[in-house]
Amino acid sequence: MGSGEYTDEELLILFRDEKQREAAFSVLVNKYQEQLYWHIRKIVLSHMDTDDILQNVFIKVWKNLLNFRNDSSLYTWLYRIATNETISFIKKQKKNQMVSYDDYINSVANNAVTEGYFTGTEIQNKLQKAILTLPDKQRIIFQMKYFEELKYDEMSKILRTSVGALKASYHHAVKKIQIFLKNN
């Protein structure tokens, strides 16, 4: 099965058939893995952490896909699971580190660099540090708008937040980042 050959609806039908379940799931993973990977990676920065979160996301998808109701598109549902898993991860990470906020930001940014999979310039690194200073939800909103260039309508469905609130949040995030870049 090639990922480009099947629509989401077809994949869901195949997944319901026990004999075709694994093949259908494999196609689904191939279809969405990169989008979800980059969505998570740009929030948590580290490749290793992204890999862990992404695996958890697909495990949840596997367990719950039979219960998926077409209230939203499969893409929105997957993004929502990925976003929730990422938020949970960030909260756990902050709780476990038991260090000051500045130390937390430096450790997350430095880990990403020392892993060897961050190849940004100094200003790109500084931008990432600025993003880390934002509150969790604002950080995700900024990331989705700025890096993924998602439309507010799509973001609204994924985050279950009104378009107005998203716009306001993004505006505040940009301001805070500008100030951080100016002062640091």
Partner: peptide, 10 residues
């Protein structure tokens, strides 16, 4: 600030 080229994957 350029958005691309910051991250690599194995």
């Amino acid at each position: 600030i350029p958005k691309e080229g910051m991250f690599k994957v194995p």
